[in-house]
């Protein structure tokens, strides 16, 4: 009986992952196609790898955030967020839980916006540095402060499993990236590897964190 329950959970989670993969393809393919067309039409100059990575991660954050926010607005959507594998549409989702979903959506939307902004500004200016980046930097700082506050709210409202996922994702990212960046920096010093920019380092960090947090959440049963 216990084994059956585990099998059901596994099948449910695999179904959820498959649905999310299809949804990701559905969102990613048109976005990639449009960018490719713009590149071919020379409307957009070719981006360095770090900008492409940052934009990809930013779009992922934005799409996830907007989907969560949209689902949190209706009863059926809230039921899906509460239990994606087997939503109970008759269940009452408490206001505190709805707020938790919206806090997560807010963090993701802000993260996507802040990550995309510097790249998009450079795109609009055709790669040239902005004439006066101070107002945009102020906007990023304000967004960062708001996101930090939202993250604190999430931590305070989260139960022990969510907190563990957050802590383990941070620890795993630090462990992996401190080693990788140290080795890369050694390679640069010894002139066997090329220099990477600070923006490149941020793009790598965000990408690694995104992957590791997804893996940790899945392993802890939050997938």
């Amino acid at each position: 009986m216990m084994q059956d329950g585990h099998s059901e959970d596994g099948a449910r989670r695999m179904r959820t992952v498959a649905i999310m993969a299809v949804a990701g393809l559905g969102a990613g393919f048109p976005a990639g196609w449009i960018i490719g067309r713009l590149l071919k039409m020379h409307k957009v100059h070719a981006l360095p790898w770090s900008d492409e990575a940052a934009l990809t991660i930013a779009v992922t954050f934005l799409v996830c955030g907007l989907v969560i926010l949209g689902l949190s607005l209706g009863q059926r959507g809230r039921a899906i967020l509460a239990n994606p594998g087997a939503p109970d549409f008759a269940a009452i989702i408490r206001p505190a839980q709805v707020m938790f979903f919206r806090l997560q959506a807010g963090v993701l939307i802000l993260a996507g916006g802040m990550l995309a902004l510097p790249v998009l500004v450079a795109l609009i200016d055709d790669g040239a540095p902005a004439a006066d980046g101070t107002p945009l930097m102020a906007a990023v700082l304000a967004g960062f402060a708001l996101q930090t506050w939202l993250n604190v709210m999430i931590w305070r409202r989260a139960d022990e499993v969510f907190r563990r996922v957050i802590a383990e994702s941070g620890a795993a990212s630090f462990w992996l990236l401190q080693g990788a960046f140290f080795l890369w920096a050694c390679g640069v010093k010894l002139q066997v590897l090329p220099e990477i920019s600070s923006w490149g380092a941020v793009s790598i960090l965000m990408g690694v964190y995104l992957i590791l947090s997804t893996v940790v959440a899945y392993r802890r049963g939050l997938g």
């Binding site: 329950g5 239990n83 839980q97 139960d159 022990e160 499993v161 969510f162 802890r220 049963g221």
Partner: peptide, 16 residues
């Protein structure tokens, strides 16, 4: 218990 459904699932399946 004052925890999420996911937390109960994680405990039941031995993931937490």
């Amino acid at each position: 218990l004052g925890v999420s459904r996911q937390a109960i699932n994680a405990i039941e399946t031995g993931k937490h």
